[in-house]
Design a protein around this nucleic acid. Structure first.
Ligand SMILES: [Zn+2]
Ligand SMILES: [Zn+2]
Ligand SMILES: [Zn+2]
Ligand SMILES: [Zn+2]
Lengths: 409, 409
DNA sequence: CGCCGTCCACCGTTCACACGT
DNA sequence: TACGTGTGAACGGTGGACGGC
């Protein structure tokens, strides 16, 4: 329809834009003062600012000023600071909505493409699907050796040598293993629920040596509820058993498993509402053959959730970190399956797991906090009580009465 | 306008609230869905498609699709693939013969006569960059006139004429609009909570004429809790208001909005736990400039969730349908942003929305079912009670005590 | 008034070139 | 030096406005 309704934004705000008056005011770029050949995106602007604005908006670029965010934007130095240039474009009233999506190629190029070798675009991908993977080293040109000689954890051999992006998942994984291993230490960090946590995730996870072990425990434990069902699913998937596998090697058999008749009654009660969400999630992981890397990266993504208790700043950190790991996961998948189309599809299937995972987390919380406990109170064995206590503590603390999370600086 | 004292009138973009409802039944471009100011070259078409068709035919342009020759042609991205746009023009019945030769030929002839003075008037225009059409017949071998005059559906004009993949989102969207519009009919389908539902989603949504209106209401209502917060976020994003916008045009102002001091107390109470999840979700949508199509497709994806109450078969259907729409969304995004890398990134950011969305849904359910109600019982006004009842019914029925969902065959 | 046409401001792409690494 | 990325002058294509019949 008419595009005019997106052009009305001529409201030049308060600022010092428009230092020029008179009849030739229309020929002056309101951003940089260069010659303006007409109206661009709602205001008089030069060709340079037009192109810059289009590229910035279309690619959704985020710049950051290296100075005080008050750089002077004039013709001769408009390329000095992109952040301030874009900010001035917006302040001057340039309308991001007037930037359109990418168009078709020009006709000239279509003809040339036709003359050159037939490529059968869009359907191509004729290269052999089977290819020896060998470009892992490509990532290893990293020279950042500032870290002390890492002590290799046996469980995660290949991960450490990779992209630094993968450090945090490794650390997270390691912390979690500790937690599940040292059960006798349980009470020690269980009492930390009323402790204030004021360190950013990034900092904690990437500088594990600078934080106390107990503190790391707290951090990892705090994030556990977000991912615990996912962890169970992954373990179960690798166990080959049809059931819900715990990290200690025991499992709760699902229908179809040979030990199905041995199910614990209280587990059945507890799990029966959840397993209809749990098993489809696990099936998805099996179907797409999620590997250890994808597991780790996805788990980090799932762990990085904004919670109500976080400050504005904390949420922003968590969001940025999460997006970073989504990119990492995408990057990894692109390496693994070369076809970019299939890579996107694979990524999307994994991200869909977030949904049942969140549902499980919240439903668990609901079950534990709700009346499930009181209903079965009569016949509770010590094991059941222990299980309930464990689940309650682990699942509850991160969701309902969480610690206060913020960052220092 | 003055619903009650708590909300403020708000103008939403008309395509969202009342998308071409009734009055402009025929004024829809059959190619791209834009507003059609009459018949062009034989069919209802917009100015853009008119000009595009004229230029293409007159210059005898040969385009080639860079993709799979099945690009989506809609207003916002009709310029993305000219091959598919022209093909759709022809398929829609635009008549190349109706394109005339250039007028004002004499004007250019004068200019050319000044330069050379040699010109054959009959077929001329040889060296002008604009060539005359001459092999139109080649294009006209289209004999597919087998279709009867299509009865255009007035409510969702651009969408119906599209890819069949998009039918279900459209239908879903339409149903939902009905639900929100016919408030007086509310009780009629509110009582259907104990009704058995035994028809697959696919069937219902793709054959809307074969199911009763009331049944469709039930289906749509059943799916509402999965997406309602997302719908609010999308409306709010387009309203330009800083607040939670309802579909009736009212809104609950957030901090920073000019009407913030007028917030309703009970809404504040209800929303304060949720808004910390809600606004980040909305910010993500704003940041990535989610468009209407992405909105529809994502909403369908979000609506297609396995619930505990579904049978094995029902869950499988839901899963397959969801994956289908994820692929559709991916396809759409790939067309919109050509770079496959960026497409994957965009898709992943949208899928990340599933997480806060699920969290909101379950938290809402928790709040409504919990003690929030009893706490404020003393000072409840009729409006509050009505609101509570509505929220309780809408959010609750789909999650906690849902109808039985299965498929027939 | 309806449906052709053209017109031209503005949006897009293109690609030599500057610049940082 | 080669390379990748961003820039902006030049040009192509788009579509709302308007004129003719
Ligand atoms: Zn400028
Ligand atoms: Zn600056
Ligand atoms: Zn059109
Ligand atoms: Zn195409």
């Amino acid at each position: 329809m008419d595009r005019n309704n997106s052009y009305f934004a001529l409201n030049l705000p308060n600022q010092m834009v428009m230092p020029y008056y008179g009849q030739d005011a229309g020929n002056i770029c309101v951003v940089c003062g260069d010659f303006a050949n007409g109206i661009k995106y709602g205001v008089f602007a030069c060709n340079g600012c037009k192109g810059f604005f289009r590229r910035s908006v279309r690619d959704n670029r985020k710049y950051r000023c290296r100075f005080a965010a008050d750089c002077i934007v004039i013709k001769d130095q408009r390329n000095a600071c992109r952040a301030c240039r874009l900010q001035k474009c917006l302040n001057a009233g340039m309308n991001p909505k007037a930037v359109q999506v990418e168009r078709d190629k020009q006709l000239r190029e279509i003809i040339e493409a036709e003359n050159s070798g037939d490529e059968s675009p869009g359907e191509g991908l004729s290269d052999s699907p089977i290819r020896v993977q060998k470009e892992v080293k490509e990532m290893e040109t990293q020279t950042e050796q500032e870290e002390p000689p890492k002590q290799q954890i046996a469980i995660l051999p290949p991960l450490e040598s990779l992209d630094p992006d993968f450090n945090i998942p490794c650390t997270l994984f390691e912390r979690e293993r500790e937690i599940w291993s040292f059960e006798d230490d349980y009470l020690a960090y269980s009492s930390s629920a009323d402790q204030k946590v004021e360190v950013p995730f990034e900092f904690v996870y990437s500088n594990p040596n600078m934080v106390s072990r107990r503190f790391k425990m707290t951090m990892a434990k705090y994030r556990l509820p977000c991912t615990s069902w996912f962890v169970h699913a992954f373990y179960s998937m690798h166990s080959g058993r049809k059931g819900l596998c715990m990290t200690d090697g025991t499992y709760h058999p699902y229908i179809g498993d040979e030990n199905y008749y041995k199910r614990e009654h209280f587990m059945t009660l507890f799990f029966e509402e959840l397993e209809k969400i749990f098993y489809p999630m696990q099936n998805m992981m099996v179907e797409w053959k999620m590997d250890v890397f994808e597991y780790l990266l996805f788990k980090t993504i799932a762990a990085l959730q904004e919670e109500c208790c976080m400050s504005e700043k904390g949420r922003k950190i968590v969001k940025q970190a999460r997006e970073k790991y989504v990119r990492s996961l995408y990057k990894y998948i692109r390496q693994k399956v070369k076809d970019p189309l299939k890579a996107g599809e694979r990524l999307s299937h994994f991200l869909l797991l977030l949904n049942p995972l969140t549902a499980l987390r919240m439903k668990t919380n609901e079950l534990i906090g709700g009346d499930h406990q009181s209903q079965t109170q009569e016949r509770r064995s010590p094991i059941e009580e222990e299980f309930d206590a464990l689940m309650k503590d682990v699942h509850r603390s991160g969701v309902c009465e969480p610690e206060y999370i913020d960052i220092i600086n």
